[in-house]
Design a protein around this nucleic acid. Structure first.
Lengths: 197, 197, 197, 197
DNA sequence: TATGAATGAGGTTTCATTCAT
DNA sequence: TATGAATGAAACCTCATTCAT
């Protein structure tokens, strides 16, 4: 390939392309198995071009992770805000789950990176769990039938379900966010006369 | 500097040591971030010694994974065999979970590798889920309260809970296998007059 | 984004700017640590513009070096011409040194490049020394007190003093050309009844 | 070249070889123009071998520089200690210079690196000059004929002479340490009845 | 059995330079 | 005249693996 600018080339487009390919490859094969050479090959560009738009492989990965986390926190915090107050917990939980899962389907590869691949994902989930436990404790939420289960356990279990169902049912498009949110609600907040006591 | 066989050295001992350190490091930092040099350093041996006992880094990892899978399948299949027949499902499930979790606590690092790190883990879990779904369907198991939840979803959710609780509660020794098995049973098989119909 | 010729731009101005910045940066950080990207950034221009005016990084550096050498040779040769004849050597030497040092202070960065940085500087100094030795020998100049010192050594020593004093006292503006010329004369041509014999 | 250990190879020897070649090349072409590939090629080894013995190109260079500086400081401080007290300054100066120059001839390439190439060289020389000025001031040393020259200037001039004569006469083996030390003494400490006042 | 010594292969990153506009 | 966009070439460095002892 000759040196210099290509016909019809655009920086914005190239950067976008690299970003897309990076997300695809990172999510498909993980950080270590994705080489810069893979990314630029997929984008039909060369390695120096990568460094025109990104500082380093690591920083690109971190940026992607941050992007995910930011969006996720926004949605999660929005949902949590609704949860305060103890009526209609079931409905509110459903709404929050649906929002989260909707974001996931709309950004499947970013989700794989930020929710499953990155080192920071685990910390984020721990925080998540902490917040949920707190809210549930303060507002005295938890299905009556689960009265024998510690709230912390309840929450971690739910998180695990969310993780696995996302991976196997949502991102494989076997189920929609709505369906999955309903499933989870059915499992963790079985319908009852009164959810709180 | 001295070379050759060390006094008091035994091949088996060296191999065992390398195995242990490899398990520790792979489980702690993952495959790619664990270098052969790290393993042998931890074992106080040298790199060529590694190749005396293992064909390659990859094959060692695969061996460890296989070891885990074999044990796991044994336990799982044992449990499944009990499950056939539809009385006392709750108890049998509890027993199976307890067995699995017991194996996990006894082999925490191998579990991290074989259940969480390896590429084959996912496939194994898929199989697991398949078998569980099959059994549950054939024997018509599933709590009445979950009648609105598809069996496949139910099973994947349970698997997710198992994963996450193992990681956050069992391997951190915050909960025993018994406790955790009970928790899961309480969540997924809430006590009822009759579990099956 | 806008491309093409800027309003108010003039080729000469851009070239001059690049030249200035290049001199600054080459003199401050040396050839290898000065990147084209640094130069154009400092000049608020872009890399291709650099190649509009200069053939390459190396050729620019060489040009700068040549510019210095040319000026230097002019001054030096002028001074040498005066030196022919053996009266008033002290005064003539002083004048020559002052002229050289004046040029140095007026072109501090170019001096750093052409007198200290460039590979050719050494060759130039060798020539310089040769010429000085020749003149001094032919005209039988050299302080009586230094009768035990070989002329070549005398000259190289003086050159070394010139180098170091330029670097540490002149270019740091701790001393004027006049002062420094006098200092050197005082060291190398201590006042005597008769300078020559 | 086949992989693995070569016949008759020795780590000590390889390291030494690399060190030698590195010193040669760094001193001949400077830091930036000396590639690791050059060094290992000269040593008939491969690049990874370099990293078996040195942490990085930069650290190797720094090590070499430090080695020079340490030796130099030792010699210099030894010389300075002798200088305290004001009799026989001429002799003591001669001795010190001879020691320094002797070290230089014995380590010509290291000298080029540590005294002429490294960034730290300048700082070292500044310190050197400071110490000399201090000693000369305190002990009231300085040739009578140089009474019109500021001590600082005197010292910097001497240092410049030392630099240049080292480069052009000593390292080219045109003059021995003894001869050069004498030359410098003759220039800067012209014989007199009394050196101090 | 074990190690000292070495390397093939390949990774990330940098930089001077060039093309298309 | 000037720039946005791109790349060839090559630098430093790492790691799994292997040979000679």
């Amino acid at each position: 390939m000759a040196r210099g600018r290509r016909v019809n080339s655009s920086g914005e487009r190239s950067k976008q392309l690299l970003l897309e390919k990076a997300i695809e490859l990172f999510s498909a094969h993980g950080y270590h198995q994705t080489k810069i050479s893979d990314i630029v090959k997929a984008a039909n560009l060369t390695q120096p071009t990568f460094y025109l738009y990104f500082h380093s492989k690591e920083s690109l990965f971190n940026d992607l992770n941050s992007e995910f986390q930011k969006s996720f926190y926004d949605i999660f915090n929005g949902g949590l805000a609704q949860l305060e107050g103890n009526e209609n917990v079931r409905k509110k939980m459903f709404a929050m789950l649906k929002d989260i899962l909707s974001y996931f389907v709309q950004n499947p590869n970013l989700t794989k990176i930020g929710f499953f691949e990155s080192a920071e994902a685990e910390e984020m989930k721990r925080e998540l769990a902490d917040r949920l436990v707190e809210i549930m404790t303060v507002h005295n939420i938890q299905g009556s039938m689960l009265e024998h289960v510690d709230t912390r356990i309840f929450v971690e279990s739910l998180l695990g379900s969310l993780e696995r169902l996302t991976l196997t049912k949502l991102l494989t498009e076997k189920r929609t966010p709505e369906m999955l949110a309903e499933d989870i609600i059915n499992i963790y907040f079985a319908e009852q006369e009164e959810l709180v006591r």
